[in-house]
Design a protein around this nucleic acid. Sequence first.
DNA 1: CGGGATCCTGCCTGATACTG
DNA 2: CAGTATCAGGCAGGATCCCG
Lengths: 95, 95
Amino acid sequence: MNVIGGKWTFMIIRELFYGPKRFGEFQKILNGISPRTLSIRLKELEEEKIINRTIYSEIPPHVEYSLTKKGETLRPIFEAMKEWGNAWDVLAEEK
Amino acid sequence: MNVIGGKWTFMIIRELFYGPKRFGEFQKILNGISPRTLSIRLKELEEEKIINRTIYSEIPPHVEYSLTKKGETLRPIFEAMKEWGNAWDVLAEEK
DNA sequence: CGGGATCCTGCCTGATACTG
DNA sequence: CAGTATCAGGCAGGATCCCG
């Protein structure tokens, strides 16, 4: 829970299972996340070796986030949670 | 995450995998949880049909919490998280 | 484009005391 | 024993502005 328990952390990682993402992409997909929070969460995940931060020195700047091997091993957990969510249709019950 | 994402919720459910528990037992096991918070979390889990609340009308009063079938289906998620925690020894790395 | 710095706020949570 | 009531605080998170 320390790793994936944050309000946004879960969604950030989930997006990365579909492939690398850029800072701006996260801002669009994670509707409403502030740059401050996104920045903090990404930094934390990087420190925990869950994601990689790759910088392409171009103009304009280009930074890409991707899952590390450690991050990839989280997939079974996400799959289990996804199945559970489907089985009980949690979101729909939220009214 | 809405279901198990709370600070204490995860631990409450985990304890219930080992069998029913009483209010007082949770207070001892979950070191430091306040009765207020415990009460709120238990009520939430009951509303979400994750746990059962069974009252034994005796003196002194006796209330027992146990997992519902829905709650039981969370087990694979907990197993997956447990394995991941063991594999990466998360707690030990916490300094 | 990808963030850092600052300021501010609400809600979650803890502490404590009390009751059926 | 199993909670509820009340009060107070901290910290995650949002809003905004700015810079390399």
